[in-house]
């Protein structure tokens, strides 16, 4: 309990530091906000234009599809705020040897490395996405029990997304530069922003059973739409546990391989 409180305290302090840093560059703040809105609006309009010419895709009408993309946007908002900047930072710290300082701190090194930077600006747009999620959820409509499941499932989608990206990021220990690996991460996000049924079967199996990229948003949302898809939730939990165990092993292996450019 004391440890959890200490770690949450560190997270809170990091968030405050990021906020004050962000506000000291006001033009950047506005640009970041604009970028978030641009990403949101272009994807929203893409699906909206698509549904001006069709009625359903894979049994999902416009409302279902909009709920799905807003879900994905909510996950990405939280991801951009708490996780994304750390993957880029990890790549540069591995190259310039600054990872050394993280290993010396009295914190779990994996925690410290991947929570060091937060980007609170991404949370500014979160209320808009959350409101739209509620709007489209009520249009479907979701039952009371499904509404109760929304927050845990959203967090499950976020956790699985971060864990998959952590797994990919571990490969940076074995590559020359981390930029390429970070691009794989971003491409995985692009793949997961569409529901699994748009992809061919082979691809669907590979990216669900192999690396569960397609499960991150599709499984959670489908569990809300379809009672028969309940089994997809335990799949997500098992995937998270398995990935966490594998990441722990890879982190230890990677650190053994790490040569510290600064020393």
């Amino acid at each position: 309990m004391t440890i959890t409180r200490a770690y949450l305290g560190v997270l809170g302090q990091l968030l405050l530091n990021s906020l004050s840093k962000l506000l000291s560059f006001r033009l950047n703040f506005i640009l970041f906000l604009f970028a978030e809105l641009a990403a949101f609006s272009t994807f929203y309009l893409t699906v909206d234009f698509l549904y001006q010419h069709i009625t359903t895709v894979g049994g999902w009408n416009r409302t279902h599809f909009m709920f799905f993309i807003i879900w994905w946007q909510c996950v990405m908002n939280l991801h951009s705020a708490f996780a994304a900047p750390n993957f880029w930072n990890f790549a540069s710290e591995l190259q310039n040897g600054n990872l050394d300082f993280r290993l010396l701190r009295p914190l779990g090194s994996l925690f410290d490395t991947f929570t060091a930077i937060t980007r609170p600006i991404s949370l500014v747009i979160f209320p808009l996405n959350a409101s739209l999620l509620v709007y489209y959820g009520s249009q479907i409509p979701l039952s009371a029990s499904k509404w109760l499941a929304v927050t845990p499932l959203l967090l499950l989608s976020l956790t699985l997304t971060i864990l998959i990206e952590l797994l990919i990021a571990m490969s940076m220990f074995w590559t020359t530069g981390g930029d390429g690996v970070n691009f794989i991460r971003i491409q995985c996000q692009q793949i997961s922003k569409w529901p699994d049924f748009v992809y061919p079967r082979v691809f669907r199996v590979a990216f669900t059973v192999g690396i569960p990229i397609l499960a991150t948003s599709t499984f959670s949302v489908r569990a809300l739409f379809d009672d028969g898809a309940w089994w997809e939730v335990p799949f997500l939990v098992c995937a998270c546990i398995t990935l966490w165990l594998v990441i722990g092993q890879l982190w230890r292996l990677g650190l053994r391989r790490y040569e510290s450019a600064s020393s």
Binding site: G58, T175, T176, D179, F183, I186, I191, W194
Partner: peptide, 29 residues
């Protein structure tokens, strides 16, 4: 590898997504 991942992979994923989304949109109708 970095050249492939940073400069070519995004285009490959782009076609993979676009092609499959449109293929499935047409298939479902």
């Amino acid at each position: 590898i970095d050249f492939f991942l940073t400069l070519l992979a995004p285009s490959l994923v782009f076609i993979l997504i676009n092609y499959n989304v449109w293929r499935s949109v047409y298939s479902f109708r």
